[in-house]
Nucleic acid binder design. Structure first.
Length: 288
DNA sequence: CTATGGCCCTGGTTGC
DNA sequence: TGCAACCAGGGCCATA
């Protein structure tokens, strides 16, 4: 599920309930969610710490911890495919259907934070230094550090297919399968175009459409295409109603009417319009 | 460097 | 209806 817009929505909704809270205890239902640390050590690291800030970096939710005013590490949460954060209070108990999938629970001085994750791919991990996670990440697509000229240089420095490159979190951090397909369609670019063979104007379009797509999706609180993603308030997002290509295989392109096609690129289902996103010349799909 | 396939997991949907 | 196969908003790792 969650890509940048869903993670951003999650952060905005849990922030008020978490900032300022103190972690009184920990319950771990699936130890691997901790990313290799034992439950015992995780408990020791976070018990007694105060959550002073809730923020987002790429697809991570970052809880900054302090003990008596001094930095005390971070909890990095990655929702992967099916993860969700829920705040439970006596007045707002967890939805009954979710209880069986709580993998980590933080007992707070007011309420609980439940990390729910059906498929168990998600992570809820403690690190001492932010860099341990963020060092390998590419720029934030909506941040000031992501510029059109920098993007052009970076694309030109690689010889990869556009779609897998845009999914690569070390190249650009935050896009996932849905928003890459949507941004490529809006840019009129075929997912198998090579990154180093784009005209300048195409790079400009792609740059702007990536940012516009993500911004519009955040405004609509992300996309919900099945029962997994819900905002922490339990509501589905609204951006799925705006999809141009994702999940629309065989349906008419909303711009030109031709049927949307689905192919597999880099092992990921890929949706595009063969008229609005013309294929590169055959020799340009793979390296010569 | 780039690409590919397997793997981690569970549940919903599809097709016979 | 029953059941197997296939699919899924992600990412890591080993191997060509």
């Amino acid at each position: 599920m969650p890509e940048l817009p869903e993670v951003e929505t999650t952060v905005r909704m849990v922030r008020a309930g978490l900032e300022g809270r103190t972690i009184r205890g920990v319950r771990v239902g699936w130890e691997r969610s901790l990313g290799g640390m034992s439950s015992a050590l995780f408990g020791r690291r976070v018990r007694g710490a105060q959550i002073v800030q809730v923020s987002r970096r790429a697809k991570y939710i970052v809880l900054s911890l302090e003990r008596s005013g001094a930095p005390a590490g971070f909890i990095f949460v990655h929702l992967r495919m099916s993860g969700r954060l829920c705040i439970e209070t006596p007045g707002e108990p967890l939805e009954p259907g979710l209880a069986a999938y709580v993998r980590v629970r933080l007992k707070l001085d007011r309420g609980d934070l439940a990390f729910v994750d059906v498929r168990k791919f998600g992570r809820f991990e403690f690190v001492r230094e932010r860099d341990e996670i963020t060092a390998a990440l590419g720029p934030e697509p909506l941040g000031n550090g992501f510029t059109e000229s920098g993007f052009r240089r970076a694309l030109g420095a690689r010889k990869r297919l556009l779609k897998p490159l845009l999914l690569d979190q070390t190249f650009l951090a935050g896009l996932g399968n849905i928003y890459v397909d949507e941004a490529l369609h809006r840019s009129g670019l075929h997912p198998q175009r090579r990154s180093d063979r784009l005209p300048r104007a195409a790079v400009g379009r792609l740059y702007r459409e990536i940012r516009a797509t993500l911004s519009e999706a955040i405004e609509r609180e992300g996309s919900s295409i099945d029962t997994f993603y819900r905002t922490p308030e339990g509501q589905p997002g609204q951006y799925q109603d705006r999809f141009q290509v994702y999940g629309r295989t065989g349906k008419p392109c909303l711009r030109c009417g031709r049927g949307i096609r689905r192919i597999v690129v880099g092992q990921r289902g890929t949706h595009f319009c063969s008229r609005c996103q013309p294929a590169p010349r055959p020799g340009m799909i793979s390296a010569p």
